[in-house]
Simulated scan of single mutants.
Amino acid sequence: MRAIVIKRHGGPEVLAIEERPDPEPAVGYVLIEVKAFGLNHAEIYMRSGAWGEMPEISGIECVGLVRADPTGQFRPGQTVVALVGGMGRSLNGSYAELTLVPATNVVAIETRLSWEELAAIPESYATAWSALIGILQIERGQMLVVRGATSALGQAAVNIAVDEGIRVIGTTRRPLRAGLIEAIGAQAVMIEEPDLPKTLRQQHEEGVDAVLDIVGNSTALGSLTMLRRGGELCLVGFLGGGETLNLQPVFQIPSGRRLSVFASALVLGGSEFPLAEVPFQSFVDKATTGTYRAKPAHVFGFDEISKAHRLMESGDAKGKIVVTVNP
């Protein structure tokens, strides 16, 4: 099979297409013929070496067809989505024509979407839904701030929240992108700047019900001050970098507020966060009808992986980047 491999740690130029042996079917795993995969910021860290040694084939999600499943849970030719479960971290990932994924991290889907449209959904929507509904348990009529709302994960969160009847304030670093967030249903848009938490509290004196922070440790303390008493912050990303968060809870977490974390790549598909809880078919159906504006922002060919990584690293994608395999 053809695979995109990390020859050495570094920039997008270190990604190379080479031949590798086809993975062998194994009990407990599903062999998938990859049709397309979405890119994720985690793969920048994997490629650069920031997270230490990783498998040579990156990629934490994909969509495709079942080639083989020794346990018989999935039938050959069945359309599936697959995500995390060690993909790209402890196992070779989805940047290949074939990938072997734990069965716990594979979900069968029925869809009329194209492969590239389907590939824009799995990881972003599973993470957003799990954080919003599974952890924050935010409810209709409540107010949510999504920090980093123009990212693929941010747009998924806005789509899901708006559909659930939640009032959403989206944030962005760039004023020209405000229209993008409003177009998917955000009630208001605020610009990321140092005084954002203070400005928000001036507009919403009692604070908001929840904050979904995709920017990460650099904004976490400010996000906590946005909350009302009983409100909760959930950290789900690190768009702002992976700097250490030095936290003194008694002095830096306002009394009566909660801080949680959802590390999707480490727990989705496990016993505490089984994929059976995540309504993947509903995501796909709502993307098909246009309830969710979930189309990929950019689509690249397999041979354009370095170009795709450069765009992801630039921060200019304005949504999900998808790569097709043998279209």
Rank of each mutant, 00 (worst) to 15 (best):
P249C: 07
R174I: 00
S48Q: 14
E110S: 13
V211Y: 01
G49C: 02
N105Q: 12
G165H: 05
A152Q: 03
G10S: 06
V107T: 13
I121Q: 05
G154Y: 05
A42V: 15
V211R: 13
A131R: 02
R310S: 12
V162H: 00
I133S: 14
E192R: 00
W51L: 15
T71H: 11
V63H: 04
A96E: 01
G64Y: 12
A183G: 04
V5R: 10
L275R: 05
L200C: 03
I135G: 05
L239S: 06
M87Y: 08
A42G: 14
L259E: 09
P254T: 07
Q155M: 14
Y29G: 05
S114L: 13
H41T: 04
V211L: 11
V278S: 04
G185R: 10
G11T: 12
K318R: 11
R229H: 13
E304Y: 10
E277F: 09
S264A: 15
L15N: 02
E272R: 15
A119K: 10
Q281C: 10
G52Q: 09
L83A: 11
I60Q: 09
T219R: 12
P55R: 02
L136Q: 05
R258M: 13
G28Y: 10
I214Y: 09
Q155S: 02
V323A: 03
F37C: 10
P327G: 13
G179I: 02
P274M: 11
Y29W: 06
P122N: 07
V261M: 15
G154P: 07
E205G: 09
F37N: 06
T99V: 11
G59F: 03
E18N: 07
A161W: 07
C234F: 00
E24F: 13
G301T: 06
N40C: 08
I133L: 13
L100F: 10
L259I: 09
E56F: 00
P194C: 06
N105D: 00
G315K: 07
V236D: 11
R89M: 11
G179L: 05
F302C: 03
E313G: 07
R177N: 14
S306D: 14
S306F: 07
V267S: 11
I181D: 11
L39H: 12
S260N: 14
L136V: 01
V158N: 01
Q78R: 10
A108S: 14
S271H: 09
T171E: 07
L113P: 06
A103E: 14
N92P: 11
Q203T: 07
I6C: 15
E110C: 03
L39V: 09
R140D: 13
Y292E: 08
F238Q: 12
F251P: 00
S260R: 15
A156R: 08
V80I: 07
D22N: 15
L233T: 02
L221C: 04
V323N: 04
G141H: 06
V284K: 07
A294C: 05
E110R: 05
T324L: 14
